[in-house]
Structure formats: structure tokens, C-alpha cells
Amino acid sequence: MRRYWSVPLLLALSAPCGAFNLGDLKGKLDALNPPSAQHAAAPAASGLDRFSTQEQVSSLKQALNQGAEIAVRNLSKKNGYLNNAMVHIPLPENLQKADRALRRVGLGKYSDELIAAMNHAAEAAVPEARTLLLGAVKNMTVTDAKNILLGKDDAATQFFRHSTEAALSGKFKPVVVQSMQKVSLARAYDRFAGKGVKLGLVDEQDAHLDDYITRKALDGLFLMMAAEEKKIRAHPLQATGDLARKVFAVLRGQ
């Protein structure tokens, strides 16, 4: 195969042996390939190392604020729980047998009323989550951020659950109680469940409808937050905030 040599390189190679030296040749080659071009050809830093710690934390906070805001906003809409199959709150398992019996004799409307009231109570309570969730983001440590960025698809959701669930339960329950006081069936359920516990027909944790709804409302909130987190990880360009898009794109390998 015929080789074609550049003029400067030919001149260097054809010089007398006494004039030929590697330093001189290197200088000529460097002139043809300046340092700026060499640097441009070097591979870019990979992974999170290309971002400062502050940038990593800031990007994560952008994404988490986005996920929390969307989850709370969607669940607090009218029928946000009732019409969402992912978070719809059913009757407690131990009451579902009674529900089937009522429906067989044409009294399903009572169960429907109770189910709707339960879901509307959760819907009314969920706005209470916003301040606590955003506060958890604000107080997040660098270690928390690193663990979330490099963790599983629901790492952020688990962080929120660990750091806010007890406080959220305390905020949700009074709203649930207030909502359910309007429904006479809720009081009837509590009486039924109390007897059921003694007979071993109802789980202790389901003995009070207010507690059951509060727990299910929180489960739904964290489930929706996990879904939002997964979306951001899978589709970084949908993240709000330029920095969040960049960092999650790197993690995604895009």
C-alpha cells in the first residue's frame, strides 16, 4: 500500500543524520498536532466525577423537588386516589367478604360510599405532605445524595419514606379523621372491626379505619413518588432544571 507523507515530515526524515534528532522531530510533529487538538481528542471524564459534589447534590434536589411536587399535585386533584388504579384505596381485606355479601343482596351502594369517602379523605390529606417532603430535600446530606444518585430506581423514595413517614402520618391522620366523621359508615366499621379483632377476623392494624386510610394514603404517595423518580432516571431530559438533566443523563449513559 502506497503511503503519503506530509512535507514537514519528509523534510525531517530526509535531513542528514547529524542534523536528525528526536527532539527536533517531536517539535515538528507537535506543530502539526497542537496541544489543543491533543486535549480535544482525549476522552471526556466519565460518570459523576465530571460534576462537583455541590453540582451533584443540587441536581438531585432539583429532581426530587420535581417528583414530590408532581406526586402531591396529582393525588390532591379531585378523585386523585379514587380513579387511579395504582393508588386506589380498597376496603380493608377483612371487610371485603362482607362487601361481597352486601353486593349480592343489592346493597353495594353502602360499600361504594365508604370506598369513595376513604379515597377522598386521602385526597384531602395529601397536600399536607408538600412542606415535609421539600424540607427533607433541603436538609439532605451529601452522603444521602450520593447514595440516592448511585442507588436503585426508588432510592430517593426510600429516603423520603425513612425520613418523613412518621411525621407525615401525624399530619395526615387528623385530616382523615375530620373527613371520615362525615360518614356514618366509618363509625359502623370501627365498631364492626373492634369486635372482629377479638374474634380473630380482623387484623389489629385494620381495626380503625382512620389508621388504615392514613397508611394507604402514604403508601400511594410513596408509590407515585417512586414512579416519578423512575421516569426521571429513565428519561433525564424530562427533568426540570438543566443541571438535573445533565447529571441524570450521565447516570443513564446518554
Rank of each mutant, 00 (worst) to 15 (best):
Y4P: 01
S6Y: 00
L9I: 15
L13I: 12
S14T: 14
A15Q: 12
C17Y: 04
G18A: 07
G23Y: 00
G27K: 13
P34E: 04
P35T: 01
S36F: 00
S36H: 00
A37N: 06
A40C: 03
A42D: 01
A42G: 09
A44G: 09
S46N: 10
V57H: 03
V57N: 02
S58C: 05
S59G: 15
Q62F: 04
Q66E: 12
G67W: 02
G67T: 05
A68W: 00
A71F: 00
R73D: 14
N74I: 06
L75G: 01
K77P: 08
N79H: 11
N79F: 12
A85D: 09
M86W: 07
M86A: 14
V87S: 06
H88Y: 08
H88W: 02
H88G: 01
I89D: 08
P90Q: 10
P90L: 09
L91F: 08
L91P: 13
P92H: 03
P92Q: 08
E93M: 09
N94A: 15
K97E: 13
D99E: 15
R104G: 03
R104M: 11
L107G: 01
G108Y: 01
S111H: 01
E113A: 12
A117M: 12
M118S: 11
M118Q: 07
H120Q: 14
A122M: 10
V126T: 12
V126K: 08
V126A: 01
R130M: 09
L134A: 13
A136P: 09
M140E: 10
A145W: 06
K146D: 15
N147V: 04
L150A: 02
G151I: 03
D153L: 14
E165Y: 02
A166R: 12
L168A: 04
S169W: 04
K171L: 07
P174F: 01
V175C: 02
V176D: 07
V177P: 06
Q181S: 06
R187P: 01
A188P: 03
A188K: 12
A193R: 02
V197K: 11
L199W: 07
L199Y: 06
G200Q: 13
D203I: 02
D203M: 07
D210F: 04
D211M: 00
Y212M: 05
T214A: 07
A217D: 03
A217R: 04
L218M: 13
D219Y: 03
G220V: 04
K230A: 14
K231T: 12
I232Q: 09
P236D: 10
Q238R: 13
A239T: 05
T240K: 11
T240H: 11
G241K: 08
G241Q: 06
L243N: 13
A244S: 07
R245F: 01
V247W: 03
V250E: 15
L251W: 07
G253K: 11
Q254G: 14
